[in-house]
Amino acid sequence: MMIAMALLFAGWSLLAGSQPKQFGRIVRHGHLSKSTGIAMRWAGAVLLLASLAILVQSEGPSFGALVWACLLSISAMAVALILAWLPRITPAT
């Protein structure tokens, strides 16, 4: 469960980072190359699916899928909230 949660969080973070708008927020004045963006997007998607596999394995198909669907939303919200406050935590140098 914990591993799945970590994977989901990492997956969404990668997906968020693959958006140029968000990338600029995370890495100040950073520039996101197109190929890196695509690679991040794929890696993010793979992590999200991997967490589904883990949950189905540990919780059974119906409970696993349900837990995954719930965690999918919640971890995405967590990423969005953290992104919102990130620039304040790491002030411009």
């Binding site: 958006q19 708008k21 969005a80 909230l81 992104l83």
Partner: peptide, 10 residues
């Protein structure tokens, strides 16, 4: 999708 994670409390 562009605004997927966009929350700007500031």
């Amino acid at each position: 999708f562009a605004d997927f994670f966009t929350f700007r409390p500031e």
